[in-house]
């Protein structure tokens, strides 16, 4: 999102000031808290749960994997699966297959505490078209090729929630200032929606579109608010995203249907 930093830049330049400095503030010591990031989809390769704990703000390591928790997934039909740790805090979902309309429950037991989350898998529409266009360097955009796509609403006459992920040459793009989540409450269709990430020639771009239920949407929306927060000056006081996991764990458990499209920029 170049726009935001551009506005900031104009203000800074205008008033002959530099605007940012590294903090010398001493951050409070961390008491580790469990972080759960669980996802079950209707595709077989995307179903994992990652467990970790928080670290000090100035730690070189951003999170510490948890390998010794007991993790259990169940669905409405009464199927249960105990997930086993593979590596680096990842627990792989092997047996339970994601189905649209089904509600899933994740139970984590770690250091004598129980954590519970549920999520319902809503349908997602197919991506009809995917294209790109070139934009020159400007105050608002970096030079590059920008992907846009079209898709119908996932469910007509109902409000749907979406999340999009972009892969560049099979690598997930992360560390971006923006998380792409949206509701279609105020739009007629997902038509020619452009994603604000520049790509270069010969990049292979994969776009994945996830359905979210309301609580997962709330999570990603508040996560995006937090990540783009100015620290509580114009924006609200920063706080942890609204999680659907009980007992104070951080993170999200989301059941999502996924559709995807690939394009090579030529």
């Amino acid at each position: 999102m170049k726009l935001r930093s551009s506005i900031f830049l104009i203000v800074c330049l205008s008033f002959f000031t530099s605007c940012e400095d590294l903090t010398d503030i001493a951050f409070p010591a961390n008491t580790p808290v469990l972080v759960i990031e669980g996802i079950i989809t209707d595709q077989d390769h995307l179903n994992t749960v990652r467990l970790s704990t928080t670290t000090d703000v100035n730690d070189i390591v951003h999170s510490k994997p948890v390998s010794n928790a007991s993790v259990k997934l169940s669905n409405g039909a009464g199927d249960e699966e105990v997930l086993s740790h593979t590596e680096n805090g990842f627990y792989r979902i092997e047996e339970i297959i994601g189905e649209i309309g089904e509600t899933y429950t994740l139970e984590v037991s770690y250091q004598g505490q129980e954590y519970l989350a549920t999520s319902t898998m809503l349908p997602v529409s197919d991506i009809d078209t995917i294209t790109y266009r070139f934009k020159e360097n400007s105050l608002i955009d970096y030079e590059g090729y920008y992907i846009s796509f079209s898709a119908p609403k996932s469910r007509k006459d109902q409000v749907n929630y979406y999340r999009w992920l972009l892969y560049k040459n099979d690598t997930l793009l992360s560390g971006k200032a923006d998380i792409f989540v949206s509701t279609d409450e105020f739009i007629s269709s997902l038509k020619d929606l452009e994603l604000d990430v520049p790509f270069q020639k010969n990049d292979t771009v994969t776009l994945e579109m996830y359905s979210l239920d309301k609580s997962a949407y709330d999570y990603y929306l508040t996560l995006s608010t937090l990540i783009t927060s100015d620290g509580g000056f114009f924006s609200p006081v920063p706080q942890n995203p609204t999680s659907n996991i009980s007992n104070g764990a951080l993170g999200i458990f989301s059941a999502s249907a996924v559709s995807s499209r690939k394009i090579v920029i030529e």
């Binding site: 808290v33 970790s52 928080t54 998380i179 996560l223 995203p241 951080l250």
Partner: peptide, 30 residues
């Protein structure tokens, strides 16, 4: 008064700061 993070963690490859949900604005700016 400000809220300073008490830690950090990762979600989807993003680094996210962690706040104490029961100690809002207990810190101070310089």
């Amino acid at each position: 008064a400000i809220s300073l993070p008490v830690g950090k963690y990762e979600i989807g490859g993003e680094v996210v700061v962690q706040y104490d949900p029961f100690n809002r604005n207990t810190d101070r700016l310089p």
